[in-house]
Amino acid sequence: MVTGGGRGVGAGVCREVARLGANVVVADIDDAKAIAVADEITAAGNRAEARACDVADWHAAAALIAGCVDRHGRIDGLVNAAGLMRMGTLVEMTEGLFDAMFTVNVAGTAYCAHHAAIAMSAQGSGAIVNFVSGSQMGIPEMGAYGASKGAVASFTYTWALELAGAGVRVNAVSPMGMTRMVDVATTYHDERSLPHHVNVMPDPSANAGTISFLLSDRAKDITGQIVRVEGNLLSLIVHPAIAAPVLDRPEWDFESVADAFDRDLRARLLPVGVSSLEVRPAAGGTNMWHAEDAPTKR
C-alpha cells in the first residue's frame, strides 16, 4: 500500500515494488492519478490496483487498509508518501496553513499506520515506511512543514518500539526529488525575490530503491531508523539524544547553570539547520557522538 502513490516519489515507489514482485495498491486523493499509475504498472506485466483515499479522514484510512486485507488476505507494507507542503515564516503563518499540513502529514500518516499496524500485528509481520524531511532540522520559511515532519519522525521512533514485539518494523525516509513541493518552494521564493535553497533535484524515482529495501526482508533487522536520500548520497539521520557526558550536581541555580555553559556546554553546542555530524563506535559496540568532532555544515 502506497499512499500518495499517484505522483512524485510515491508513484516511483509503486513502480519499483511492483517490478520487484509485489501486489501494489496505489492510493491517492486524486483517483485519476492513482488509476494512471496502476494502469502503467499492469501494462508492464506487473500487479497493481488503484484506490482513491483522503488519508486525513479516519474512516477513509480504515476502509483503505481493510480493503487491502479483504482483497489480498494481508498487508505486508505501508508507505506513507501522501503529504502536503506550504511555505511561510513564523510571522507569515496563518491558522489554515498550519492546520492543513498537520492534518495531512501528521494525522494522515497516523491514521493509515494505526489501521495497518492492527492488521500487521495480527499476522505477525509487516513494514511501515514514513516520510520525513531535512526541514525538521531547520530550514527558513519551512517551520510548519518541518514541524509536521518532525512529528512523523517522533512517531517513527515510538512506533518502532511499540511494534517490535509484534514483528512489525517502522522506518522512515527523508527523500529528495523534483516534485510539486519543489514548485511550491520555487514559487514562494520567486514571489519574494529570495534565493532558492536547492537548485538541482533528482528525479523522484531516485528514492524508490531505498524505500523498497526498507520494505523488504533484506531489512528485517532494521527498525526505528531514518534514511536520507539525496540523489547520489545515502545517509542516516540520527535520533534526538541526550549529549554525553551529563553534568551532575545537587542543585542547578542560575549561577551554576551559567558556569556550566561557560566551562563545558557552550563548547558542545550543535549547529542549527541541516548539518552533518560524525558518529564513531564506542566501547561496548554502541555508537556515540564525539564532542571533539567539529560539525560540518551542509
Rank of each mutant, 00 (worst) to 15 (best):
G4S: 11
V9L: 05
A11P: 02
G12W: 09
C14W: 00
V17T: 10
R19A: 14
G21Q: 11
A22S: 15
I29P: 06
D30A: 15
A32T: 14
A44K: 03
R47A: 12
R51D: 02
A56M: 05
H59L: 14
A60M: 14
A61G: 08
A62Q: 08
H72W: 06
D76V: 08
M85Q: 09
M85V: 09
L90R: 03
V91M: 13
T94V: 05
G96V: 08
F98M: 08
F102R: 11
V104Q: 03
V104H: 04
V104R: 01
Y111W: 04
A113Y: 04
A119M: 03
G124E: 13
V129Y: 04
F131L: 15
S135N: 11
Q136L: 15
M137S: 12
G146S: 13
A147F: 01
S148Q: 08
S148W: 03
A151E: 05
A151Y: 06
V152I: 03
V152H: 00
S154V: 05
T156Y: 02
W159I: 00
L161C: 13
L161M: 14
L161A: 12
L163P: 08
V173Y: 00
V173S: 02
M176V: 09
G177P: 02
T179I: 09
M181H: 14
D183C: 04
T187I: 11
T187R: 09
R192D: 11
A206G: 06
G209L: 02
I211F: 10
L215H: 14
L215G: 10
A219D: 13
K220C: 15
L233A: 03
H239N: 11
P245Y: 02
L247H: 01
L247V: 08
P250C: 08
D262K: 11
L265V: 10
P271W: 15
P271L: 10
S275P: 05
L277T: 12
T296P: 04
K297R: 00
K297C: 06
K297H: 05
R298D: 15
